[in-house]
Design a protein around this nucleic acid. Structure first.
Length: 199
DNA sequence: ACCGGGATGTTCT
DNA sequence: GAACATCCCGGTG
């Protein structure tokens, strides 16, 4: 059931989120039967980044970002959505990469079931993880996964199946923020149909 | 296709 | 009170 490929080691995450983010493109997010290729990410740079939840210092909400790299930071927003980040940098640095969109590979039935709770919407495969809240919902990631270790044989993890990141990747300003809109810290796989917006 | 508004509740000013 | 790293639906063209 484990997909072919190696789970990314903790050292992968111990760098700046600005280095990790483009390297996460074309890696595969895996949890149980579900797998999806990461096609869109954004870097958030802790205390130096006005758009980061860590900008104002450590709180109960953002505590996972201040912890060791290679764990999830999961937050709740807009009263109904969960979003998932991979924590980067050394402990205390509070940088993270938001997982914004992925192309479903396996476990599509489970994803669709998770995405249908409370709604009766039939959706195209490529839309199942198209957007940060859809991605989290499709994988069943919520507050219970905040702080979860990404490095290990079980649970949620990110693996390298040998597909290189795009060269060059697409790059743009981050989406949905009001602060620091000039920083081009969103990276994506150009032309992928599962992008949260075309590019 | 594009646009406008509503859903929902936690966090911070 | 306001803002919020969003999504969905129903309008119009």
């Amino acid at each position: 059931m484990s997909p072919r490929g190696a789970t990314l080691p903790r050292a992968f995450y111990r760098r700046s989120s600005l280095e990790v983010a483009p390297d996460l493109l074309n890696k595969v997010l895996v949890w149980g039967p579900r797998a999806a290729r990461i096609v869109e990410v954004e870097a958030y740079d802790g205390a130096d980044d006005p758009a980061s939840h860590a900008f104002g210092g450590r709180t109960a909400r953002n505590a996972a970002m201040f912890g060791p790299p290679g764990h999830l930071y999961v937050y709740f927003t807009y009263g109904m959505h969960w979003c998932a980040n991979a924590v980067c940098g050394p402990s205390g640095r509070a940088t993270a990469v938001l997982l914004r969109a992925a192309a479903p590979l396996r476990g599509l039935d489970e994803m669709r079931a998770a995405r249908t709770v409370g709604r009766s919407v039939s959706r195209r495969d490529r839309d199942l993880c198209r957007g940060p809240a859809r991605l989290a919902q499709a994988f069943g990631i919520d507050g219970a996964s905040d702080g979860a270790d990404l490095v290990g044989p079980s649970g949620v993890r990110i693996v390298d199946d040998g597909t290189a990141p795009p060269d060059p990747p697409g790059r743009s300003a981050r989406i949905g923020i009001r602060q620091a809109t000039d920083r081009p810290w969103r990276w994506y796989v150009p032309g992928d149909p599962s992008l949260s917006r075309p590019g």
